Computed example of a mutant assay.
Amino acid sequence: MSWRGVLGVALVLAAIFSGWSAWRMRDRSEPPADTTQRSDYVLRDFELVMLARDGTESLRLEAPQLQRNREDESLAIDRPVFHTPGQDGAWRLTADQGWINADGDLARLTGNVAGDSAEGHPVPTTFRTDTLELLPDQDLARTGDRVTLTRPGIMQTGVGFQANLQTRQYQFLSQVQTRYEPTPRR
Rank of each mutant, 00 (worst) to 15 (best):
A52H: 13
L109Y: 01
D72T: 08
R26D: 08
L165Y: 00
E73S: 15
L93W: 01
G144M: 08
S174I: 01
R151D: 03
I16F: 12
N112R: 14
D130C: 06
L66Y: 04
P85M: 02
T178Y: 03
D145F: 07
L61F: 05
I100W: 02
G104P: 01
P184Y: 03
A163L: 15
G144C: 06
Q65P: 06
S58G: 12
R186F: 11
R68I: 09
Q67N: 14
T167N: 03
V176A: 02
A141P: 04
W23I: 05
T94R: 09
T143F: 02
G55H: 03
A114E: 12
T150E: 14
G86A: 02
V9I: 15
L59T: 03
T148G: 10
R128W: 11
A95P: 02
Q169G: 06
R108A: 11
N101Y: 08
Q177C: 04
Y170R: 00
T84S: 10
D103W: 07
A14V: 11
N112K: 11
A95I: 03
A90Q: 10
T110R: 14
D96A: 14
R79Y: 09
L66M: 15
R53W: 10
A90F: 11
P64A: 04
R151G: 02
M25D: 10
L132S: 02
T129A: 04
D137Q: 13
A90S: 14
R128N: 13
R142A: 11
R26N: 09
P152Q: 04
L165K: 00
V159D: 09
T35H: 09
A118Y: 00
G55S: 07
Q156S: 15
G153S: 10
D54G: 09
G160S: 05
F17Q: 10
W99M: 07
Y170N: 02
D139I: 00
D116V: 15
A102G: 10
F161T: 00
E119P: 11
Y41I: 09
D116H: 12
E62G: 09
D54Y: 07
P32N: 04
L75P: 05
R179E: 15
D40Q: 14
M1A: 15
T129C: 11
F127D: 00
I154L: 15
L48T: 10
N164G: 02
P184W: 04
G115T: 01
V81H: 12
N69A: 15
D103A: 15
S29Y: 05
W20E: 05
R4V: 12
L43N: 05
D45F: 08
A118S: 06
L106G: 04
G8E: 05
G111K: 01
W99H: 12
Q166A: 13
D103I: 06
A107G: 12
E71T: 14
S58H: 07
H121K: 05
